[in-house]
Amino acid sequence: MKAKKSILLVTIQDDYNIGNRLQNYALQYLLTNHGFEVTNLKDRIETSAGVKENIKIIIKNVLSLVGIKKYKKQMLIENNMRNRYMANKQFSINNINNIIQINHTSVYEEDWSKYSLGIVGSDQVWHKWFDDGYELPYYYLQFLPKEKRVSYAASFGFEDFPAEDKVQHIEGIQGMNKISCRESGGCRLVEQVTGEKVPHVLDPTLLLTKNEWENLIKDSNEYSKNQGSYIFVYFLGNITSEYQKEIDKIANSRKTKIIDFLNFEDENISSCGPKEFVNLIKNADYIFTDSFHCCVFSILFNKDFKAFRRSQSGMEKMFNRIEELLVNTGNQDKAFGGVSSNIITKDFQKLQQASLDYLEEILRDRK
Rank of each mutant, 00 (worst) to 15 (best):
G157Y: 01
I55V: 15
K210C: 08
Y230D: 12
P145Q: 09
I269M: 11
Q101K: 14
Q124V: 04
N97H: 12
I231S: 14
L30Y: 00
Y71S: 06
H127I: 01
K210Y: 04
E37S: 10
G118F: 05
V125H: 02
N238K: 15
F288K: 00
K218F: 07
S6C: 09
Q312M: 14
T256P: 02
E53D: 15
N211F: 09
E46L: 09
Q23R: 06
I258Y: 04
I119S: 07
A251I: 07
I250Q: 07
T209N: 04
Q353T: 15
E147N: 12
Y230N: 11
G337L: 08
S253P: 01
L356Y: 05
N24C: 10
T39M: 06
L326E: 06
I179C: 05
T289A: 00
E212P: 00
M315P: 01
T39E: 07
A154Y: 06
P162V: 03
L189E: 09
G121E: 06
A335H: 06
S116G: 15
D266H: 05
A335G: 08
F91I: 09
Y115H: 05
K4Q: 04
K70H: 07
E191R: 14
L141W: 15
F161Y: 11
C181E: 04
Q352N: 13
K52L: 10
S92L: 01
G185S: 13
L136F: 07
Y358E: 07
G121K: 07
L216H: 12
A49I: 08
A154E: 08
Q174T: 02
